[in-house]
Design a protein around this nucleic acid. Structure first.
Lengths: 221, 221
DNA sequence: CCGTCGTCGAATGTCGACATTAGACACATT
DNA sequence: AATGTGTCTAATGTCGACATTCGACGACGG
């Protein structure tokens, strides 16, 4: 039996997620409480609840007395966010490096194989999905809940707000090689290197996204 | 002219902060909306707003359909939080290490001097305050806003929820020496060591707090 | 005596209306 | 024309009441 959504608030959150993923919302857009309430046929109270919850995840930029907006991140903020994620994930993977079993490593290698093939085939969405699974799998090996929380928040935020730019970001061989390097460093049990490799991965990713954003003349503040 | 608080929500947040700092609230306590509303002579709406905002900072544990509570952290969660803060602050300080001026370093040394003296004098509150300033000053040198945000959230959370345990945590010479080591590593411009020293500082702090908590037979889940 | 079930109370979830404020627009003044 | 002021509108902030749900307590049955 499927658990059905109970509170309106949760339905509102789903609604906003779907609009985000369907590209019906873009950074800078305003989310009017009354409009959302009208759309969903409910009052503003649960809308406000939902917006506050999304604020917690950093997906909503709330300005008192003014309104709620989708965050517009400057290139610097994007790079900072990716860097921070790299720092968190680097430590997570490093500190959990001994806990990876042979099966784990095989699985990671398979992720990279599939990702590389998808990249060569131009299956951008699949590349992104596998990439997400790869990193989630990595981080999940850490038993530090606090680290995981912040890491996944950043992941979610960056994913939702910049998903659409991904298709232009990588060269197939490069993305495969970079992820392979992470697996290799884990196999080698070289803690210092593991942390460094993961960090660099994110710093490079952030830098590339910003470069792409500039090229495609997305508004940059 | 002083800016006065405008919205009730902000007043509620202040009210809760004061209760926290005055030890009128302890981990596990329930925060009833209707009671707070009655206390402050306002309706429940701004109370809910305030609680949601504090949730963002991790200071409120919200359980749907049940209520809002002050988080009860397990020893593991405390250690995890301190570790995470160490990872973030370690990177922040390391990456900003070149930006410390001679004046900055002198100031840091002075913080440590005063802290050491306060510790020897048994001025626990002063030790905590100076320690906070010391770390804030360190982290503020990073120009990564995302890092700063998470770091200060953790700082706030740990401060508010465990402030009262600090008095029992350190030996005067030890706390001075540990902070001095951070300054020394910055002076030496040894990036690897900087990051390591800051991390260790927090890991040790977390471990000690948990030890103290166990000793003083605070409820541990 | 113990476990299950139903009732009840109190707290959170939601509602619609009103109060207040920020931003836009038009107007007056220089 | 540019600037400052005042009004107006639409959005957020707050309110009190009602709906719904969770947890406690006690009655009932084994």
């Amino acid at each position: 039996m499927v658990i059905v959504k109970k509170t309106y608030k949760d339905q509102v959150i789903d609604h906003i997620y779907q609009m985000l993923l369907a590209d019906q919302l873009k950074p800078g857009d305003r989310l009017k409480e009354s409009l959302l309430a009208l759309e969903m046929g409910i009052s503003r109270a649960p809308i406000r609840e939902a917006l506050k919850e999304l604020m917690t995840l950093g997906l909503i930029d709330y300005k008192p007395q003014i309104g709620n907006f989708l965050p517009v991140m400057t290139p610097k903020q994007i790079i900072d966010s990716y860097t921070t994620r790299g720092v968190l994930e680097g430590y997570a993977v490093m500190s959990a490096s001994e806990h990876f079993t042979r099966q784990d490593l095989e699985r990671l290698d398979r992720y990279v194989d599939v990702m590389g093939q998808a990249a060569r085939d131009g299956e951008h969405k699949q590349v992104v999905d596998i990439g997400g699974e790869f990193h989630d799998f990595l981080v999940a090996r850490s038993d530090n809940q606090q680290l995981l929380e912040y890491s996944s928040r950043l992941s979610m935020k960056l994913h939702v707000l910049f998903f659409k730019h991904w298709g232009m970001l990588y060269r197939p061989d490069e993305i495969e090689q970079r992820h392979r390097a992470i697996v290799t460093s884990i196999k080698a049990q070289d803690k210092t290197r593991i942390e460094q490799v993961v960090r660099n991965h994110y710093v490079e990713t952030g830098t590339k996204i910003v470069a792409v954003q500039a090229l495609s003349s997305v508004t940059v503040i």
